[in-house]
């Protein structure tokens, strides 16, 4: 076992264990944190697979933004009561069955006898001055510019959808700031002199 392989297995184990942690944790905060670990571990694997840019993006965007969003929502929802794990206890053998089935199939399918790629594909290590960011950038902004624009629209949709769903404007009990009214206010409205009737 080479060092590289050893590191790969460590990361893999970390990733899988934290995935298990995510799905079985009762507290969603713990779940989210497990997920963060999982992401970080897989970012490590991605780096080893020479996808440096994406590994970094995973940490920055996913861990930095999306998972933060998750945590934020979890906090906001203020779930005081932790749910029981009844379903899990009852059905976990079933889950194991799914796992074994899928993994077994996978092992069968990618066996070198069935997949020639598995035996003869040899990843060419990139030279030291190779920049993954540059290479990706070169294709994303040229060859894949159409897809890039569509992705931009998808993000726009996400903004529109999230705002139109979560925005509270239509509810009357919402407290809102009316800036124009705030600016137009006069001195009289700001300050009201009240005569102190109590003591002279």
């Amino acid at each position: 076992m080479t060092l590289l392989q050893f590191i790969f297995y460590v990361f893999s184990a970390l990733m899988l264990l934290s995935a298990v942690g995510t799905i079985i944790s009762r507290n969603p905060v713990h779940g989210a944190l497990f997920l963060v670990v999982c992401f970080v571990a897989s970012a490590g694997i991605w780096l080893m697979l020479q996808a440096e840019f994406l590994g970094l993006v995973l940490v920055l965007v996913y861990v930095g933004a999306v998972m933060t969003l998750f945590l934020f929502v979890v906090m906001m929802l203020n779930l005081d009561k932790l749910p029981s794990r009844a379903g899990f206890k009852k059905y976990w053998p079933f889950g194991i069955l799914i796992l074994l089935l899928l993994v077994g199939l996978m092992i069968y399918v990618v066996a070198p006898s069935h997949l020639s790629l598995a035996s003869n594909a040899i990843a060419i290590p990139h030279p030291a001055d190779y920049s993954n960011v540059q290479a990706l950038g070169a294709v994303i902004y040229t060859q894949y510019v159409y897809a890039f624009e569509i992705a931009a629209v998808i993000l726009l949709v996400a903004i529109i959808a999230a705002i139109s769903l979560a925005f509270h404007a239509f509810h009357q009990d919402t407290k809102r700031q009316n800036i124009s009214k705030q600016v137009q206010t006069t001195a009289a409205e700001r300050l009201r002199l009240v005569k102190n009737m109590g003591k002279e």
């Binding site: 995510t22 799905i23 944790s25 969603p28 779940g31 998750f70 929502v73 979890v74 929802l77 779930l79 749910p83 029981s84 794990r85 009844a86 379903g87 899990f88 059905y91 976990w92 079933f94 889950g95 799914i98």
Partner: peptide, 10 residues
């Protein structure tokens, strides 16, 4: 997805 029966966020 299948075994979690309580928490939507999970």
């Amino acid at each position: 997805l299948v075994l979690n029966r309580h928490n939507l966020i999970v």
